[in-house]
Simulated scan of single mutants.
Amino acid sequence: MSEIKIMPVDITDAAQLLDIYAYYIQNTAITFEYEIPSLTEYQKRIEEISQTYPYLVAKKDGKVVGFAYAAPFNHRAAYKWSVEVTIYLDPTSRGNGIGKKLYYRLEQCLSAMGFQNLNACISVPKKDADSYVDYGSMHFHEHLGYKLVGRFHSCGYKFDTWYDMIWMEKLIGDHPVPAPLLLDK
């Protein structure tokens, strides 16, 4: 069995990341994005995020099978110790522990940088799972120690269906006073 390698993103990975993300845009309500961004736009997103925050890829036999990154939770200064985390896996690679490896490594990087709170924005069905979204991401995050902190009702519309969105949070720091200095990547 091939080993999964977790490493920082390289801009040359962008096309493979976009292929993974495109699947979720076209086939799921996991992202509320409707249109697949151009490769140029997606490369710009990667470059902007990875200037400040960890952006990791999981590779198997040299092929990207998943990615995870952090981004600002909110742009106001008081929120700078909190980040929003995101993860996407190649659909054929789900359920093999890759997501857990990516998130653990991402958490290690963020903790070392001084971040205190991880926040995940997750789409969920209003009630019962459908062919576009289920509670899998919520359960994945629960398994990793995230707690539900809020639910927004019928806030996303995709595939002629209204979906709810939840926020989950994991505290990774002890919130000292004064707040820790944030280190560069």
Rank of each mutant, 00 (worst) to 15 (best):
Pro37His: 04
Asn119Val: 15
Arg45Lys: 07
Lys44Pro: 06
Leu18His: 07
Lys100Ala: 15
Leu118Gly: 08
Gly136Arg: 02
Glu48Trp: 07
Val64Met: 11
Pro54Arg: 05
Lys80His: 12
Leu39Tyr: 02
Gly156Glu: 08
Ser131Val: 10
Met7Asn: 12
Lys126Cys: 12
Met165Trp: 05
Leu182Cys: 07
Gly173Cys: 06
Tyr146Ser: 05
Ile122Val: 02
Ala129Trp: 04
Val124Asp: 05
Met165Leu: 12
Met138Val: 10
Asp128Gly: 08
Gly99Pro: 00
Arg151His: 09
Ala120Lys: 07
Thr161Asp: 09
Thr86Pro: 06
His175Trp: 14
Gln116Trp: 11
Tyr55Gly: 07
Pro72Lys: 13
Lys5His: 13
Ser38Arg: 06
Tyr132Asn: 07
Tyr103Val: 08
Lys126Gln: 14
Asp90Asn: 14
Arg105Lys: 15
Asp128Glu: 14
Ser82Asp: 06
Cys109Gly: 07
Lys101Leu: 11
Arg151Val: 06
Ala70Gly: 15
Trp162Thr: 00
Asn96Ile: 10
Met165Gln: 13
Lys126Leu: 11
His153Phe: 13
Ile49Phe: 03
Asp61Arg: 14
Asp184Ala: 12
Gly136Met: 01
Ser82Val: 02
Ser2Trp: 07
Pro72Glu: 13
Arg76Thr: 10
Ile49His: 02
Asp160Ile: 04
Ile6Cys: 11
Glu84Cys: 03
Ala15Gln: 12
Arg105Asp: 13
Gly95Arg: 08
Glu33Ile: 00
Tyr157Met: 04
Asn117Gln: 15
Lys60His: 12
Leu89Ala: 07
Lys5Trp: 05
Asp164Leu: 03
Glu107Val: 02
Lys127His: 13
Lys100Gln: 15
Ala22Trp: 02
Tyr24Val: 04
Lys60Tyr: 08
Leu18Ala: 02
Tyr21Leu: 02
Ala71Cys: 10
Gly66Met: 09
Ile122Lys: 00
Gly97Ser: 09
Leu181Val: 14
Gln116His: 14
Val133Lys: 01
Glu47Lys: 14
Asn96Lys: 15
Met138Thr: 08
Gln116Pro: 08
Val83Lys: 09
Glu35Thr: 07
Thr161His: 15
Gly173Thr: 08
Ile4Lys: 03
Ser2Leu: 09
Leu148Ile: 04
Leu181Trp: 13
Tyr104Leu: 14
Thr31Phe: 00
Glu35Val: 06
Lys44Phe: 13
Pro8Thr: 04
Lys127Met: 10
Trp167His: 06
Ser111Trp: 02
His75Leu: 12
Glu41Phe: 05
Leu118Phe: 06
Glu33Met: 04
Phe73Ser: 07
Glu33Lys: 05
Thr28Arg: 01
Ser93Phe: 08
Ser38Ile: 00
His153Met: 13
Ile20Met: 11
Val149Ile: 04
Val133Gln: 02
Leu17Thr: 01
Asn119His: 11
Ile49Asp: 00
Phe115Cys: 01
Tyr24Trp: 08
Leu182Pro: 06
Ala29Tyr: 03
Thr86Tyr: 03
Pro125Thr: 04
Asn117Leu: 13
Lys127Cys: 10
Thr161Pro: 09
Asp13Arg: 01
Ala77Asn: 12
Asp184Met: 06
Ser123Cys: 06
Val9Asn: 03
Glu169Cys: 10
Cys121Ile: 02
Val64Arg: 07
Ile98Ser: 09
